[in-house]
Design a protein around this nucleic acid. Structure first.
Lengths: 202, 202
DNA sequence: CATTAATTGCAATGAGCGTTGTACTTCGGC
DNA sequence: GCCGAAGTACAACGCTCATTGCAATTAATG
């Protein structure tokens, strides 16, 4: 039995991601997606039934892949700490340096958040679990380990992870125009002021 | 010369905001907006020329009104500090407690961010200036005043304002499902650990 | 090479929607 | 009560687009 020819499936998900990310669900046309992916429109319907089915598949696929990428990043940069400030800044910079590959994903995330009133709740939940929650958990695990080693004073590692992300990548996204490095350094300083034992005791 | 009948204009902007916020520019139909606003479709074209013109008007109107509201909030809650922690938590809670009136606005903001590739750059700039930048400036001014009074140790009040907002309202939005009060208290604690003189010296 | 599943091209259908023209109605100020 | 501006109702045009059916074609596997 012939398996999927070449990697039409991969091409389709990639092209659909690009178009959905730029245009949103409503504006994105099946024709535009088919052309961007180098696939016939009929193939889309054969595989995913309708536009909504394709959208769902794109969301889950992209969220899973990017989360894997980010977790790998955290494992690489946060596993062995030499200097907390230096390493956290490096992590924040890598996180914020959306290579073009992940740029489409984050544009899709904005589309999802804007369109959430029209997206099935189960899909939203599955996306949160496959993406943001999983990543936050991975960062939280690293922070907890360093807390156990005495590098940090942490009550709730999940909140600490959330705050670290908000102070770095979150702040960079909220203030377009400002230089990311400046924002991230300031964010790490604030984070360490709150959580580094030698500086603060909460 | 007969002035605008009753307040069709106000009704139109309000109804259009509601529909644009829920459905986004592309999904929102002129018919739906007309019905939501209690106005005929023809009136819309008479006033704003086309859909894009109406959208632009809605963005600027809503951004200006909500920014005014938030600046008033900051003036009321941040002008006279009794206890820093208590007052900042109250401010964060009020900020995050999107009354239904401002809820539509923030949904519209998400639509704008998602659709920014299709919105005229000048409109985006005008919106940033009329809304977020102005509000951040107001918060920064309050923080600077309290720094001058010795309540806070701040290098760059604009970054401090950005961080305060990210640690409270920003974190609440990033982690739906968690209880806002818990997130905000933790955010204020982190902020104060970094900026309160008795705790940290940066 | 033969088989078989995957893929494609194409035409057609039907719905939704932005936009306009026109004639009609309603209101507020004089 | 009159007038002009503001608002309305309605029909029509043209375009985009999701979706489907069908016949033809391709390519991997045996």
């Amino acid at each position: 039995m012939p398996t999927a020819r070449a990697d039409k499936q991969r091409d389709l998900l990639d092209g659909a991601l690009r178009v959905f990310a730029r245009d949103g669900y409503s504006r994105a046309s099946i024709d535009a997606i088919a052309e961007a992916a180098g696939v016939s429109t009929r193939t889309i319907y054969n595989h995913y039934g309708d536009k909504a089915g394709l959208f769902k598949a794109v969301i889950l696929d992209s969220a899973t892949r990017v989360a894997d990428h980010e977790i790998a990043l955290a494992d690489r940069l946060l596993a062995h700490i030499v200097d907390l400030q230096t390493d956290l800044v490096a992590f924040g910079l890598a996180w914020s340096a959306h290579d073009p590959a992940t740029a489409d994903h984050f544009a899709l995330v904005r589309q999802i958040q804007a369109d959430s009133a029209h997206i099935d709740g189960e899909i939203l939940g599955a996306w949160q679990e496959a993406g943001p929650v999983r990543v936050r958990g991975a960062v939280a695990a690293h922070l907890k380990a360093h807390a156990a080693a005495g590098l940090l004073h942490i009550n709730d590692e999940n909140i600490a992870a959330l705050q670290l992300i908000q102070l770095t990548a979150g702040s960079v996204m909220a203030a377009p125009g400002a230089r990311p490095e400046r924002i991230i350094r300031a964010g790490v300083d604030t984070f360490l002021a709150a959580y580094q034992p030698s500086t603060s005791y909460s």
